[in-house]
């Protein structure tokens, strides 16, 4: 992906984030995701239908990377099964942490494939994804 295109995707999702909404509905699992070292602070709202992610929303104050990553993540994971989602999540993690990963499942999230070069941004790119992982774990535990 060309770096100007990456930038454009990030800025688009930062300026007009998808699924950014505060939810007050007990059908959603709510988890908070933040880091001890930076100031991003996001809530993730997950609604499951059996094995499938029926809806995914996020809300909070966060930087351009974190906000755009959350927006892209919600688009990518909505409608996926838990197994599919976990596969995407681990590939995304690997990409951001500069390990081997499968490009094909990541869609727009590939715009962060060089984020590891900016050490102070790695955490930002991971924060929403840590949140969804936590939410899915909570769902599985309750099942």
């Amino acid at each position: 992906m060309d770096s100007e295109i990456k930038k454009a995707i990030i800025m688009e999702h930062y300026s007009n984030p998808h699924n950014r909404e505060e939810i007050h509905d007990d059908n959603y699992i709510k988890v908070n995701s933040k880091s001890e070292t930076c100031i991003d602070n996001l809530d993730i709202y997950l609604k499951m239908n059996g094995d499938v992610i029926e809806d995914l929303k996020f809300y909070g104050e966060a930087c351009a990377i974190s906000t755009s990553a959350a927006s892209i993540m919600t688009e990518l994971l909505k409608g996926k099964t838990i197994t599919e989602a976990n596969n995407i999540i681990s590939n995304y993690d690997n990409m951001v942490l500069e390990k081997d990963y499968d490009k094909d499942c990541l869609g727009d999230a590939l715009c962060y494939d060089e984020i590891y070069k900016q050490t102070n941004r790695i955490n930002c790119a991971l924060i929403p994804w840590r949140g969804i992982k936590k939410a899915l774990d909570q769902y599985e535990e309750k099942k």
């Binding site: 930076c38 991003d40 906000t67 102070n120 941004r121």
Partner: peptide
Amino acid sequence: GIFSQDVAIYLSKYKICVRAGN
């Protein structure tokens, strides 16, 4: 319209050190 941390990171590219956060 720009998150404080993004402003701080932008300035850091010019070797200017400011703090963002609470």
